[in-house]
Nucleic acid binder design. Structure first.
Length: 717
DNA sequence: ATGCCACTAATTTTT
DNA sequence: TTAGTGGCAT
């Protein structure tokens, strides 16, 4: 037996990889070789003959993770990874539903709505029911529907006493009916529908349980209720559910992730305890010590402490800037210094809590001529020109697709205005037929000619496409629909949009369908399930800018975490309850553990937020790090519990513009409160005699005081 | 049908 | 501050 597979694994990794055919929970710390363990275990199962390629189910959250698993597995052993059930929750559910579409009550060619499509479907529904989107904002309805689906609950199982919720439930039911009528499913529906098919059909779930003796899950801490329920259906007591995750890196509770699933797995599957992967192969010792110290403050952890046999490395650099601009300047200066020392820009990242923080960094980066790349923003298949072209494709494939029809009926403008569309929608509702059918039946009216012309366009496209390949079809659609002409006439960004459309044809050219007859459906599915890269110039040597969330799973030689201020990181919306604060702390933990060699933390004493200057204080997370691991680069910073002395207190910056309104108090001024003791003014709002001051008290922490009441209790210091 | 003004809200996000 | 949206005028 060739055991090269197992060479170089540490004892814990080895134990996880060669775990017998029963369930396990692997508590995999950041940088502990999680993906390696997962892929090596699959390779091991196959190589030892414990499993056949068809007998393994491996689930991830992102396409990127799934692809990486496939690539690495293919490099380890000769196996056709394409045929294996390795994929995302959604991708695998799609695959399942394409096979069992009859059991699921779906057309074989069902289409997938991405969140944008779902949003327009909901807006359309609200309109058709004549419901004001004031009272029922589409976003709120969407959120309600998705969170119910992600809890595995259908509209029919819900009840409510208040009329508002009752209406939401009604809308949920009506939305599902609309989707069903149109043969489309949203993301959550892929999961829920698969779950229902399996749970209703004992023979079918039995079949899959027998087939998938080994079920492996990545990022298990991010699973929601429905995903875990789905896993439990596929992995019964006799199957081996092998879940890998890290409760300390659970940062998606806000979108339904349930860390509790980790503990649930232990009891549901009678697993005695997690296998801990604590040896870290990424970061220098000091970074790990600091991260450990931070995360230890969270309650209810499964418990884990990262270590490395690499040396301690550099201390963590801490910089407290006067302003957000100066903070950005510091970061960029430091990046340039490192680059001069031979560090690659692409191996450095600036991480921030919220996207808005990138603006000022960009500004300084442009000024300094440093190449950078921002993660996030529009992705390829989300661009309007791509969506338009694909809507035509959908319409050609299935004219009953109302969403697609509405998207392009007047794009490019062909004289079918809002009122004609409204008439059409009324007609379709009254006759109980799709928009397309209503369109075909439309008699008189002023726009009748235009409508008929549109019908002819789609019909002729369908006919002409029959004999064409996917790429030829898309190419024809772009030309014949008038999209190309429209963007050629658009001087502003037509050129870029045309280039993207060409790119779309290219993508179609390189697309290999599983089943050639289904090429169009498969291509549309892929476009929905895999929206593509954020940016094309990914390969260039450029400084990486992204949110901490986006950085999960990545690593860099040098990491800058900016905006470490109360209210920003931790974010003020999460500061009220302990759960929120702990998630923010995990976010900080994720941020820190991205760094290999060098970690920089920074904050600013004044920051522009929502067009107003704020004077925040340093994040508690900085103070939670052991002082001996930090090297303070700025002159003003004080560590530990003492009130923060900011630039104002030191007279370094002119009084804030607000100062006149503060009822005699100044930003940064020291004061004494009869009850709370000594403190410093750190923020204020209001004017005249309605002023509130935010004060950081040495003993009692940060408080907002209403001057109307607190006036007599305060004295200057 | 398009463009302008006023208004509002303002984390994090994959599929 | 700014980005996105809705109403209204051209």
């Amino acid at each position: 037996m060739n055991n090269d597979l197992l060479a170089g694994l540490n004892p814990e990794q080895l134990s996880a990889v060669t775990w017998p055919a029963k369930s396990a929970l692997v508590l995999a710390g950041a940088g502990s070789g999680k993906t390696r363990v997962l892929t090596t275990r699959i390779a091991w199962l196959l190589q030892t003959g414990q499993a056949s390629p068809a007998g393994v189910l491996a689930v991830t959250f992102t396409n990127k993770a799934a692809r990486e698993m496939q690539t690495r597995l293919a490099a380890m052993i000769p196996v056709n990874v394409k045929t294996m059930w390795i994929g995302t929750f959604h991708g695998l559910c799609n695959r399942f539903l394409r096979v069992h579409y009859r059991d699921a009550g779906l057309p074989q060619t069902f289409q997938i709505l991405d969140s944008g499509d779902q949003s327009s479907a909901i807006k359309r529904l609200l309109k058709s029911l004549d419901i004001s989107d004031e009272k029922f904002p589409p976003k709120a309805v969407q959120q309600f529907i998705n969170s119910q689906k992600e809890s595995g609950v259908r509209a029919g199982e819900l009840s409510a006493h208040d009329p508002y919720t009752r209406k939401l439930i009604e809308l949920y039911a009506a939305y599902d009916a609309q989707c069903q009528r149109e043969g489309v499913v949203d993301f959550a529906e892929l999961l829920l529908r698969s779950y229902e098919v399996l749970s209703r059909n004992a023979a079918l779930s039995e079949h899959y349980r027998n087939r998938f003796r080994f079920v492996l899950v990545d990022e298990f801490q991010d699973t929601n209720r429905l995903q875990y329920a789905w896993l439990k259906l596929l992995a019964g007591p006799d199957n081996a559910l092998f879940a890998v995750g890290d409760d300390d890196q659970s940062i998606y509770a806000f979108r339904g992730a349930e860390v509790g699933n980790m503990r649930a797995l232990l009891s549901d599957y009678g697993v005695t305890g997690p296998i801990r992967l604590e040896q870290n192969y990424r970061s220098a010792g000091t970074i790990l010590d600091a991260a450990n110290a931070l995360i230890e403050r969270n309650d209810g952890r499964l418990g884990k402490s990262l270590w490395t046999d690499a040396g301690p490395g550099d201390k963590i650099r801490l910089y407290e800037a006067y302003s957000d601009g100066e903070e950005a300047q510091f970061i960029v200066d430091e990046v340039r210094a490192l680059a001069r020392d031979g560090w690659n820009l692409a191996d450095m990242a600036v991480l921030y809590r919220s996207n808005a923080q990138s603006r000022i960094l960009e500004h300084v980066l442009v000024q300094s001529g440093v190449a950078y790349r921002i993660y996030g923003g529009l992705r390829f298949f989300e661009r309007q020109e791509i969506k338009h072209a694909l809507a035509y494709l959908r319409l050609v494939a299935n004219p009953e697709d109302d969403n697609a029809l509405l998207r392009v009926i007047n794009v490019p403008a062909r004289g079918i205005g809002a009122r004609s569309v409204e008439n059409l929608q009324t007609a379709s509702r009254e006759q109980g037929v799709s928009l397309w059918q209503a369109l075909c039946g439309a008699g008189g009216g002023r726009t009748a000619g235009k409508l008929a012309e549109f019908v002819r366009l789609i019909d002729s496209l369908r006919q002409r496409c029959e004999a064409l390949s996917l790429a030829e079809t898309i190419s024809l659609i772009i030309d014949a629909s008038g999209l190309r002409a429209m963007y050629e006439a658009d001087k502003k960004d037509g050129e870029e949009r045309l280039a993207n459309l060409d790119e779309l044809v290219n993508a179609a050219l390189g697309f290999l369908p599983q089943e050639p007859a289904m090429a169009v459906i498969e291509f549309l599915t892929q476009a929905s399930l895999e929206a593509g890269d954020h940016q094309a110039d990914a390969g260039a040597d450029a400084l990486q800018l992204m949110t901490v969330h986006a950085a999960k799973g990545l690593e860099f030689d040098a990491v800058f975490v900016g905006g470490l201020e109360e209210g920003l990181f931790p974010h003020e919306n999460s500061m009220n309850d302990g759960k929120g604060l702990e998630e923010e702390r995990r976010l900080m933990y994720v941020a820190m553990t991205r760094a290999r060699k060098r970690l920089y933390l920074s904050c600013a004493q004044s920051r522009m937020l929502h067009g107003q200057s704020r004077y925040p204080i340093r994040s508690r997370f900085v103070d939670e790090l052991p002082a001996e691991l930090l090297q303070v680069l700025s002159a003003t910073v004080k560590t530990a519990a003492a009130p923060v002395r900011n630039a104002y207190a030191q007279g370094r910056i002119a009084a804030a513009p607000l100062a006149a309104n503060l009822g005699g108090w100044k930003m940064g001024q020291g004061l004494h409160h009869t009850k709370f003791g000594d403190g410093v003014v750190i923020n204020a709002e209001g004017a005249g005699d309605d002023v509130r001051l935010q004060i950081n008290f040495a003993e009692h922490g940060i408080k907002w005081l209403d001057l109307r009441y607190a006036k007599d209790k305060l004295s200057a210091q």
